[in-house]
Design a protein around this nucleic acid. Sequence first.
RNA 1: GCGCGCGUAGCUCAAUGGAUAGAGUAACUGACUACGAAUCAGCAGGUUGGGGGUUCGACUCCCUCCGCGCGCACCA
Length: 571
Amino acid sequence: MVNYKEKIGQILIEADVALSYEELLDTIEVPTDKSMGDYAFPCFKLAKAMRKAPPLIAKDIAEKISSNEIFDKVESVNAYVNIFISRQKFVESIITEVNEKEDAFGRSEKGKGKTVIVEFSSPNIAKPFHIGHIRSTVIGNAIYKLYDFLGYDTIRINHLGDYGTQFGKMICAYRRWGNKEDVQREPIKTLLSYYTKFHEEADKDATLEDEARSIFTALERGEPDEVELWKWFREESLKEFNRVYKMLGIEFDSYAGESFYSDKMQRVLDELSEKGLLQESQGAQIVDLSEHSLPVAMITKSDGSTLYITRDIAAGFYRKEHYDFYKNIYVVASQQNLHFQQWFKIVELLGYDWAKDCIHVPFGLVSLEDGTMSTRQGRVVFLEDVLNRAVEQTKNIILEKGVNTDNADETSKKVGIGAVIFQELSNNRIKDYTFSWDKVLNFEGETGPYVQYTHARACSVLRNAGNSVSGLGDISKLDMKYVVGDAAFELSKLIYEMPEVIEDAADRYEPSVLTRHVVDIAQAFNSFYHEEHILVDNEDEKLAKLALVAAARIAIKNGLDLLGIESPEKM
RNA sequence: GCGCGCGUAGCUCAAUGGAUAGAGUAACUGACUACGAAUCAGCAGGUUGGGGGUUCGACUCCCUCCGCGCGCACCA
């Protein structure tokens, strides 16, 4: 497939345009208005060097390059050179390529031999998996899929919050008020109730806090009783988390959480100390980052115990040595911005250049209509409930509409859960948002079900064509003059852009770029579908159109796939 | 107080420094005897928070002010 931008860049170089190839690629753009061409080249930058008015430069360039066979028409409008590419050649090559590559359309080998770690989801043990956790989970999974598709070796890490003084409190509460059967029946809710009770009681009796601390110290020392309880809480919690991951179709390569690094922190402390970065302050150990315009980072508390940041530094070392990453990505809320800035800087000050390969991918806050989420105050929406309700809603719609499907339950899951994931990946991740049932259960307009519906519709057309689909034969031999109309051409252009959109989404760690592009393709497909009759009597015309439908179907499916969303063939 | 982020149509959101700032949604109008109406087409909706500046050109970059969110030593 020709890269048109690069091709136009070369043509402009041959036409003696006084810019470097890189500058040209940077300047060539896609006009906002289709009537101004498929590509445009603004000539303002050339004015100084050529000592000529931009519109005149545009006119000269347009004349020089207009005879090229890959263009239908080149014209100058004011300071712009507007380029209309040859439609038939274009649709022919893109439709052929997509149908040949199918699932591999957009895939690349760019990342071959490079390892990318994506840390995401990372819930806290014994705490509910709520709607706030969906962000890291779903964004992280999409980023993993994008990098995997671009040929990188990928490692998915679920950095479980399974360590810290909170487990001293939990064990303390369990021993006082807990019982085994309740925990087994409903682990998270039960453990959480112990945790809440602990805080209520601790307000009245301060000695509880001391007891909890000593239990945590025992846990750190590896006392068998404490370790056994902790392990059990962790397992029960994971069982529940895995139920949600299974619904979402998400897996991990490692569940090495915070506890995994408990024996790997001394080395960090030693090294910080050797390199003169560690200072004592009010009994605690700190790293002073004021020279780097950052607040002081506390490495150990006055009682000697370690903190979150110490564990993250230890994890960084472990990952560099164990995986030799090319990129080490953390999909963690923007609230942790300072935390990551601090520890990346500390690693840099220790003299490790891999600090620059550690990347924090932040995202905005989810709140509820009645305020920020608070598990202790019972202001929380469980992710599993959201998924279940979305599935239920889908089932109702299916029954109500009497839609064509093989298995209503299966389809409801794919569509309902797809809707929730899609919505999460629709907006720029940095934006805060307020969770709304109305919004998450709306399936019209720019939504997951809309895109899935479009896919199912394309499948339906291909099914109705019967033998014609498999009989498409050698697609490059089809007569593509039947698919050069505005609607078909628009659709083809969007499909053509998929691979660069995928790269862009990965480079920017921004799955929403892809989500939006998939919507654009669906919209273009639906316009084409309504404007033109596909299953016409003329066999050549029908086959050409079916080849385009098949290409659109593949593009949508690959896009949804990368977002972690299924594409049912009927719905 | 200091730092980071956000502010675009009634609402939810797009827009690698480029041409007349675009979608969806809500309201209104129209299209199911052609291939799926979870669809499509039309109409309407804007001082891009305010004010300066840089630039041939600013939603985009710089300064400043306002509003909101988050963070800033013994939680994670």
